[in-house]
Design a protein around this nucleic acid. Structure first.
Length: 490
RNA sequence: GGCCCCAUCGUCUAGCCAGGCCUAGGACACCAGGUUUUCAUCCUGGCGACAGGGGUUCAAAUCCCCUUGGGGUCACCA
C-alpha cells in the first residue's frame, strides 16, 4: 500500500498536442508534485503509420512551454527506460506469450472476412457487434501447432464471466458486466500489440500507481483491469477526467475552434494564462479565485475535487484571462513577447526593435491594457507605420469625426496653433495641458477637437492619448496627417 | 441502438461526499451608471441557475428512485 506514487502522461505522437491532453498532463503532473510522486512522460507510438518524431518533439516542447516538467521520459531517460512504446516491443511480446501460455489469451484464426460477416449479421439482428468467441474452443495443442505452422492469427484476451468493478477517483465506483466486454485483440496479425495491451504492460513495468486520463477511456478500463488481474498485478487507481467540450457541447474538435495547444501559443496567449485556464476546466482552486498560478495549483490540487461533468471551452473567458496576465505582467516582458508578432507583421525589423527600443517600449506601454494576446498588438499599432497619405479611416472613427460640423475649421485652427509648438521630443503632457487650455479658450467641448484629431492621426475610434500618439509619430508626420484630414473630412 | 458516464446562472464554477449557516456565492459574457479626450483599464449596480417528478427526513441544491435531456464508447486507432 505504500508504493511510491507514480503517474504518467502517455500521448500518442500522431498529431499536435491537444489542449485536452495538455490538461490531462497538467493534472497528472500536479497530482504527482502535490503528493511527492514521480511524473513520467511516455510516448505511445505503437501506430507506426501515423506516429512521427516531429509530433513527439512538438508534444515535449508544448508541455515544457506550459512549465510541466517530467522526471522520466524519452529525452531524460529514467530507471524504467525506454520511454517510447515502440522500443518496448520485446517486453510486450514476452508478456503476450506468457498470457497465452497461461490460457488468459488465445489465438484467433478468424479471417477479416468472417469478422466482417459476423458484424453484419449482428447489425441485422440489432445485436451489439462483438467477437463471438469461435476460436476460444480450439484446444491448446492445435492452436500451438497452427501458430507454429505460421497460420495468420491475432491473439485475443479471454474475458472471464462475471463483472469488473473499479474505483474511479473522479466518479466513484464503476461496474461493468463482463458480457459487455468482448474478447479484444491484444496482438495483431502482424505481431504488433494493440493499445489496451501495451498500455497495461508499460504501466505495470513502470510501476504506475495512478492513471488519470480523459473520460473517453472509461470504457477501456474494464479491459485493462481484467488484464492486470490476469497478469497477477496490482490494479492502479483510476481517475477519468471530464471531457473538454466545444460550443456544440460535443468533444472539442476543430469544427468549433482551435484544439491544439500550439494554436494558442501561436495566437499569443501567455503560457501562464493557458495553464491557468486549463486548470479552470473541470477544477476550481477555491470557487472564488480565478487568476492563480502553478504554485497554488500544486499546493491545492486533488483529483477528488475534479468535476464529473464536461466543460465547455469558453474562448471569451480565455481571452479575458489572457488579457489579465498581460496587464499584470511587466512592460519589458510584454514588449519582448510581442516583438516576434510585430516583426512577422512587417512593422519593424529586429534591428528597428533594438535601435528604437525606447520608442517601442513606449508604444507597448500605450497598448498594454488593451491587448488580450501578444498577437493583438500589431493590428493595434499598424497605423503608426502606415503611409500618411494612405491611412485607413475606420468607419466608427470617421463617423465620430464627422459628427462635428466645424471639424475642418477646428482642425485647421488647431493645426496653425500646433505647428510652432509641436517640435521634436515635445512633452506630451505639456502639449496635452496646452491643448486643453486651447479648447477651453475657444469654448469648445473636448470631443470637438479630439475626435477629428484622433481620426486624423490614427484612423481609429479608440486608443491611447492623442498627445502621446503625436509623440510617437513625430512632428512632421503628425502635422501631415492633420493637413490630410482637413481635406478628407471636409 | 447496447453499455457506460453526466446534470447548479448562456458559459466556467463554489456549495453536494460528512442534509440545516443557501431568500444558492464567485468569474466570464451581457446590460446600466461612474471615471477617462476616445477605446481599454478601473469602480458601482443589474440580469441570470439547483432539468422534471416521486420518495427519505423536523429539514434536501445536497441522500435514494424514476423520467427527461446531454455526452462518451462500441476497430487487427490510440
Amino acid at each position: 500500500m505504500s508504493d511510491p506514487i507514480r503517474l504518467r502522461f502517455a500521448p500518442s505522437p500522431t498529431g499536435q498536442l491537444h489542449v485536452g491532453g495538455a490538461r490531462t498532463a497538467l493534472f497528472n503532473w500536479a497530482y504527482a508534485r502535490r503528493h511527492g510522486g514521480t511524473f513520467i512522460l511516455r510516448i505511445e507510438d505503437t501506430d507506426p503509420e501515423r506516429s512521427t518524431r516531429e509530433y513527439e518533439r512538438a508534444i515535449l516542447e508544448g508541455l515544457a512551454w506550459l512549465g510541466i516538467q517530467w522526471d522520466e521520459g524519452p529525452d531524460v531517460g529514467g530507471p524504467y527506460a525506454p520511454y517510447r512504446q515502440s522500443e518496448r516491443i520485446d517486453r510486450h511480446r514476452k508478456a503476450a506469450a506468457s498470457l497465452l501460455a497461461a490460457g488468459h489469451a488465445y489465438r484467433c484464426f478468424c479471417t477479416p472476412e468472417r469478422l466482417d460477416r459476423l458484424r453484419e449479421e449482428q447489425a441485422q439482428r440489432k445485436e451489439k457487434p462483438a467477437y463471438d468467441g469461435l476460436c476460444r474452443k480450439i484446444d491448446a495443442a492445435e492452436s500451438a501447432a497452427r501458430g507454429a505452422r505460421g497460420e495468420p492469427h491475432v491473439v485475443r484476451f479471454r474475458v472471464p464471466a462475471g463483472e469488473t468493478a473499479f474505483v474511479d477517483h473522479v466518479r466513484g465506483k464503476v461496474v461493468f458486466d463482463n458480457k459487455e466486454v468482448e474478447d479484444w485483440v491484444m496482438v495483431r496479425t502482424d505481431g504488433n500489440p494493440t493499445y489496451n495491451f501495451v498500455v497495461v504492460c508499460d504501466d505495470v513495468d513502470m510501476r504506475v500507481t495512478h492513471v488519470f486520463r480523459g473520460e473517453e477511456h472509461l470504457v477501456n478500463t474494464p479491459k485493462q483491469v481484467l488484464l492486470y488481474q490476469a497478469m497477477g498485478q496490482r490494479v492502479p487507481e483510476f481517475g477519468h477526467l471530464p471531457l473538454m467540450l466545444g460550443t456544440d457541447h460535443k468533444k472539442l474538435s476543430k469544427r468549433t475552434g482551435d484544439t491544439a495547444l500550439q494554436d494558442y501559443r501561436e495566437k499569443g496567449f501567455p503560457a501562464e494564462a493557458v495553464l491557468n485556464f486549463l486548470c479552470l476546466q473541470g477544477w476550481a482552486l477555491d470557487g472564488k479565485t480565478e487568476v492563480f498560478g502553478v504554485e497554488e495549483l500544486l499546493a491545492k490540487f486533488d483529483i477528488r475535487d475534479v468535476n464529473k461533468a464536461g466543460a465547455v471551452f469558453d474562448i471569451a473567458k480565455f481571452l479575458w484571462l489572457s488579457g489579465e496576465y498581460i496587464r499584470r505582467d511587466s512592460l519589458d516582458r510584454v514588449a519582448d513577447m510581442c516583438a516576434p508578432y510585430v516583426v512577422r507583421a512587417g512593422l519593424m525589423t529586429e534591428d528597428d526593435l533594438s535601435t528604437r527600443r525606447d520608442w517601442y517600449r513606449s508604444v507597448v506601454a500605450g497598448e498594454k491594457e488593451r491587448i488580450r494576446t501578444y498577437a493583438e498588438l500589431p493590428e493595434r499599432i499598424a497605423y503608426l507605420f502606415a503611409d500618411d497619405t494612405a491611412l485607413r479611416y475606420d468607419e466608427v472613427a470617421e463617423k465620430n469625426a464627422r459628427k462635428h460640423a466645424d471639424r475642418a475649421a477646428t482642425l485647421r485652427a488647431y493645426l496653425e496653433w500646433l505647428r510652432p509648438r509641436l517640435v521634436k521630443d515635445a512633452d506630451p503632457h505639456a502639449l496635452g495641458e496646452a491643448g486643453r487650455a486651447w479648447i477651453a479658450e475657444r469654448g469648445l467641448k473636448p470631443p470637438q477637437l479630439l475626435q477629428p484629431l484622433r481620426c486624423a492621426l490614427t484612423g481609429q475610434a479608440g486608443g491611447p492619448d492623442v498627445y502621446e500618439i503625436m509623440g510617437w509619430l513625430g512632428p512632421e508626420r503628425s502635422l501631415r496627417r492633420i493637413e490630410l484630414a482637413i481635406e478628407r473630412l471636409a
